[in-house]
Simulated assay, not measured.
Amino acid sequence: MAPSVAARILDADARARLSALSEVDLGLIAADFDTPKARAALADAEVLFTCWGAARVDEAVLTAAPRLRAVVHAAGSVKHHLTDACWERGLIVSSGAAVNALPVAEYTVASVLFANKRVLQIRDAYRTERRSIDWDARYPGFGNYRRTIGIVGASRIGRRVLELLRAFDFELLVHDPYLTTDQATALGARRVDLDELVRRSDVVSVHAPELASTRHLLDRRRLALMPDGATLINTARGSLVDQEALTAELAAGRLHAVIDVTEPDVLPAESPLYELPNVLLTPHIAGSLGGELRRMVEHALDELERYTRGVPFAYAVEPETLTHSA
C-alpha cells in the first residue's frame, strides 16, 4: 500500500494485532516491489496485506514470491492490483468490499430522505427569506411517504441500500441484469427494466460497477425519462452517468442530484455543478473515511486471523464475479 495510506489505517492497536498474527516487518510499507528490501521480503512472503496504492501483483512479482498463498485487502475492489496471474496461481483473496459498502449505503439513504424532503431547497429559501413560509404550497407533495425509489445495481451496496430502505414507506424498484424476479422480491423490491425504473422513480440511485458495458448507463435519453423534480444519486463511478447531459438537466432546473463521484474525479473549477442550488456535490466521501477506516482494518485483520487458523475467508473474492462486479 502507499505509505500515506498505512499511516492513516494502521494505528497502534492495528499494528499490535498484525504483529501478534504474523511475522511482519512493520517498517516495510511497499508502494512497489522494485526496491531491494521489498524483493527480499517477497521471497519469504506467504500473505500480502494490501490497501489503496498497492502495486500490481503480476507474473514477475509472483515469480519473486514462490511462497505467496493469499492476499488480504483492507479496502474494496482488488481489480486495481491483482492480475490474472494471481488467479492462475490459485491465490486466495479477501476483500473489504462488504464492509466498505456500509458507509456508502448510509450516505445514500440519508440522501434519499433529504432529497424527498427538499432539505437543500428549503434551507436556501429559509436562509434568504427568513420568514414563515407555506412549504406545502411551495413544494407540493414534498416528503417521503409512498415515494418510489429506484436502485440501479443489486451490488453489495445496492442490496444494503434496499435493506435499509425497507424500514420506510417507499415503493422499491431495482434493475440488475443478473438479478432474478424472486431475488428482487426477497430484497423487498420489484425487478424492472432500466427505462421503467428511471421513468417511475422519484429518486434514482446508482450502484452498478464500472465496466465497459456500464459507461453512460444513464445517458441523455434515460435522463430525459426521469420525472420533473426527480433526484439522481450517484455514489458509484462518474462514468456511469453522462455528466454533460446531467449537467444540462440540472442547469435547466428539471432534475436534482446528489453527486459523490464525477468524471474527472475532481471537476474543473469552472464546472457549474459546484454552484447549482439543486445539486449536492461531495468529493468522493461516501465510502470509508475517517473513523470508518478502522472498520475496514479490523475486518482485514479478522480475515488474516481466519487464515492463520486454517479457516476459509468469510469474504473471499471469487474471480469469476470480477467481470460484472466492482
Rank of each mutant, 00 (worst) to 15 (best):
R56C: 02
R127G: 13
P36E: 05
D25V: 09
A43M: 10
G90P: 12
R118S: 02
A101S: 15
E59A: 15
V72I: 15
S95Y: 06
G238C: 14
S201M: 04
W87L: 09
D34C: 03
I133N: 09
V258P: 03
A7M: 04
T282Y: 10
V258H: 12
D13P: 00
A300V: 05
L217F: 05
A16Y: 03
I133D: 04
A45N: 07
R69S: 11
S111P: 01
I157F: 09
D44A: 15
L120Q: 12
R166Q: 14
S4T: 12
R306M: 09
G188T: 05
R200K: 12
E292K: 10
S132N: 06
E305Y: 00
W135H: 08
L197N: 06
E305M: 02
A110Q: 13
T308Y: 01
G90R: 10
D202N: 14
W52A: 11
E196V: 11
L113M: 13
V47K: 06
E196W: 00
L102T: 13
A224P: 00
A245G: 09
E320S: 14
V119H: 04
V261G: 10
A6S: 11
D169Y: 07
L240V: 15
L301R: 01
K37E: 15
C86E: 02
R156S: 11
R156A: 14
S22P: 08
R215F: 04
L223H: 09
L223W: 00
A64I: 03
T128R: 15
R69P: 00
V119Q: 07
L48M: 15
V47L: 14
P209C: 13
L232P: 14
R138Y: 12
H216E: 13
S213E: 14
A257D: 11
D25M: 08
L48S: 10
L217K: 07
H216R: 15
A40Q: 14
R69K: 14
I157A: 04
T128S: 15
A245K: 07
V317W: 13
Q183D: 15
F313G: 01
H81D: 05
A184S: 08
V5A: 13
G158S: 06
L42K: 04
R191L: 15
L179N: 07
T282V: 12
A236F: 08
L194F: 10
A75P: 01
A16W: 00
P268T: 05
V258N: 04
A65F: 01
D193L: 09
T181H: 14
V112R: 00
P268G: 02
G253K: 09
E23R: 14
D84V: 05
